[in-house]
């Protein structure tokens, strides 16, 4: 199973599902990370964490610990 963290900068993928539970999971849904959404990894912060992704035409930043919850498929 691949997660958002397995993507390199400028790589695209499709969301399969969101792992985890509670507030974090709901927040990810609310921000538009639902199944079949296209995601693009824009960049990683200079200190290596968080990452910046593009979804639904806008930019979102997530920590690696949260990106790990986003299961993807290439």
């Amino acid at each position: 199973m691949k997660t958002l963290n397995d993507l390199k900068t400028k790589e695209c993928a499709r969301v399969v599902k969101i792992a985890g539970a509670g507030a974090v999971r709901r927040r990810l849904f609310d921000m538009g990370l639902t199944p079949n959404t296209e995601v693009l990894v824009r960049k990683t912060a200079p200190m290596g964490d968080p990452v910046e992704i593009v979804i639904r035409g806008y930019e979102l930043s997530l920590r690696k610990s949260e990106a790990e919850l986003v299961i993807i498929e290439r």
Binding site: A23, R27, M31, P50, Y58, E59, L60, R63
Partner: peptide, 12 residues
């Protein structure tokens, strides 16, 4: 408490 998630929009 739960650490607050860092799921932050980067607006234009």
């Amino acid at each position: 408490g739960e650490p607050s998630p860092f799921i932050l929009e980067l607006p234009p």
